[in-house]
């Protein structure tokens, strides 16, 4: 009896918390994410067009875009600007590859005080590591499946 009463109290409280929690400014967040995310891609497009203009083959231009965008993300993180963009833009600056870069550079800088091997070297991947693990693993699975399907063609 005592026990069920406690469960009921907990349930009641959790409902209370849900009701009391101020909601984030959803529309503003969405607009900021859309505009900033879109704008970062426009910069990417500019870089892409620039290298195509230099005569880089179309299939290689992606390397250039990735490198430059990663550099920009890293540099803005180093300057201490990217976290302010992120505060405003949310997913708008997390989802582009510049955000991937930010997620590597931020812990690398932060853990410098713990040394360059176990600080910078190891902590670099605390956020980005899982991205590589899941991205690369799933692409290997895709490759294996593709290979098996081709065997039966």
């Amino acid at each position: 009896m005592e026990h069920t009463n406690e469960e009921r109290l907990k349930k009641e409280f959790q409902d209370m918390v849900k009701k009391s929690a101020p909601s984030s400014n959803f529309l503003k967040d969405c607009l900021a994410a859309f505009v900033v995310g879109g704008f970062i891609c426009v910069i990417g497009q500019f870089v892409m067009n620039f290298f195509i203009g230099l005569g880089i083959p179309k299939e290689d231009v992606g390397y250039y875009v990735a490198t430059i965008m990663v550099f920009l993300g890293a540099f803005l993180t180093g300057l201490g600007v990217y976290d302010n963009i992120g505060k405003f833009a949310g997913a708008g600056s997390i989802v582009p590859i510049t955000g991937f870069s930010n997620s590597i550079v931020a812990p690398a800088m932060e853990f410098k005080r713990e040394g360059f091997v176990f600080g910078v070297g190891a902590k670099m991947f605390v956020i980005a590591g899982p991205v590589l693990v899941y991205g690369i693993s799933s692409s290997v699975i895709v490759g294996i499946i593709y290979y098996i399907i081709n065997l039966f063609k």
Partner: peptide, 17 residues
């Protein structure tokens, strides 16, 4: 922040709560 949440320069958003 660095022990419980994210590195300082990480560009994340804090919820209102």
């Amino acid at each position: 922040e660095r022990q419980f949440r994210f590195p300082l320069e990480h560009g994340n958003q804090r919820p209102p709560t």
